[in-house]
Amino acid sequence: MAELPQAARGFGVTFFTMFKKVVTEQYPEDRDKYPPKPRFHGRHQLNRWADGLEKCIGCELCAWACPADAIFVEGASNSEEERFSPGERYGRVYQINYLRCIFCGLCIEACPTRALTMTNDYELADSSRASLIYEKVDLLGPMLPGMLPAPHPMVPGLTDSDYYAGKVKGSVPEQANDRPAAGGLGATS
């Protein structure tokens, strides 16, 4: 082997590698074969209570914790006519700038209501700066069965403490707001 020219020795490495197990994962073709680890820090999600009210109270602790200054929150007061979360306060504006976020997860640790968690979604490329600032609508979790879109009243007879005590299991018919859904659907007259 020693007398073989250097080049042939180099090609030899290539040749033998052809018979080794492939470690490259093909993206996007094979992405479903390789899901991220369950605790992977991906895109955030703003969670809801089982009846669809939002968990975020607009406290800004996430924004405060963020070392990259990626989060912007503006709180506001719930009213009897327009309730987004149990209790007095909700997050009226919620934005995360994914050009700044370093996915450290300090924000979700700071959140006192578990409103903010991280999903495993890592596909966050886009072609403009503006589209990488995610608004509240982009971040809110999906509507699961039993949920009603906020704003709507709390479950009758329960208080915000009951929500935190985990007593709410889903929405009840009395919570339905008779306001037309977005786009004017549901207006019957």
Partner: peptide, 9 residues
């Protein structure tokens, strides 16, 4: 001012 901002904002 209620719920309008935090001092660090």
């Amino acid at each position: 001012y209620r719920f309008r901002a935090r001092p660090f904002d």
